[in-house]
């Protein structure tokens, strides 16, 4: 397997007052293929966001390393687009200006016209064609998060990092935005890692679900492969018999196994647990 992003023996630790070390994340090993969508689930406070922020370069790496597209990461950069839980827009700038800010940096060789086209394109495909000149205060929470998504994609990053991007939204808006994200991701196939604690969201969006054990010394407890064919339709995949099976598997992990620290060891070359039934294709054909 050729890894596009390789996370090796990642450790995050803070020195404590008594001279010791508080180890937040340890033995975190993961290889992502190009164009893969991986979600990380775990209890709040387990260190899943810490791991993502190390990938983003916003949190320092205590030990181990991350290689993205053949280059070891050090510090943040526009090659990784980030969507935070709170949209984090600059309040004195319109939606367009917020998106243009990054575009002007990474596309500085392009013409003004082309840069404007990029902003217009991404703001329109996330459904904000009519609101490009509005300020964040004039936008609903869901619309602000749409700007956040447009801003991340517009930089054409090598990787997309999403830190519980829909956690603050009501369930209907969340459904809509999952769709917006998935549509855009399908077009661009940017390698993505998303942190969430919503099991359904993980199953709907991702190719693999990484399950993290509780901290301290949080690590990967298990990885589940999600083989639902794409494009996915929520209604259809939720009806699949495998959906319930996978869902129960994830919930069982969160309820029981997350509390035990048994690092995941890939077996026989397989890189994820595979519990899909053999008649998966047949079940799907029935729809």
């Amino acid at each position: 397997m050729s890894a596009y992003c390789e996370i090796s023996n990642l450790v995050k630790a803070y020195p404590t007052a008594d001279g010791g070390q508080a180890v937040i994340v340890k033995d975190f090993n993961l290889r992502l293929k190009k164009g893969e969508f991986v979600t990380v689930i775990g209890h709040s406070g387990c260190g899943k966001s810490t791991q993502l922020m190390m990938l983003a370069g916003l949190s320092s790496i205590t030990d181990g390393g991350i290689v993205l597209a053949g280059k070891e990461l050090s510090g943040p950069g526009p090659d990784r687009g980030i969507v935070f839980q709170s949209p984090s827009l600059l309040p004195w700038m319109t939606a367009r200006e917020n998106v243009m800010l990054g575009i002007n940096q990474v596309f500085f060789t392009a013409s003004k016209r082309e840069r404007a086209q990029i902003a217009e394109y991404y703001l329109s495909v996330v459904g904000l064609a009519d609101s490009v000149d509005k300020y964040p205060v004039e936008l609903s929470q869901g619309m602000r998060q749409r700007v956040g998504i447009a801003r991340a994609f517009a930089l054409k990053p090598k990787m997309l990092l999403l830190d519980e991007p829909f956690g603050m939204l009501d369930s209907l808006t969340r459904y809509e935005l999952q769709q917006v994200l998935l549509d855009l991701w399908r077009k661009e196939r940017i390698t993505a890692m998303m942190v969430t604690h919503d099991v359904d969201e993980a199953l709907y969006l991702s190719d693999r679900v990484v399950m993290m054990t509780d901290g301290p010394e949080a690590t990967i407890g298990d990885i589940l492969e999600v083989k639902f064919p794409r494009p996915r339709e929520r209604k259809v995949i939720m009806e699949l018999p495998d959906y319930q099976k996978l869902r129960e598997y994830l919930i069982e992990f969160l309820e029981v196994r997350a509390h035990q620290r048994t690092p995941f060891v890939p077996q026989n070359g397989a890189d994820a647990t595979n519990i899909h039934s053999a008649d998966f294709g047949a079940a799907l054909a029935a729809f």
Partner: peptide
């Protein structure tokens, strides 16, 4: 909409 097919700079 037009999306210019250009690469970001490092």
């Amino acid at each position: 909409l037009v999306l210019p097919d250009i690469e970001p700079e490092d």
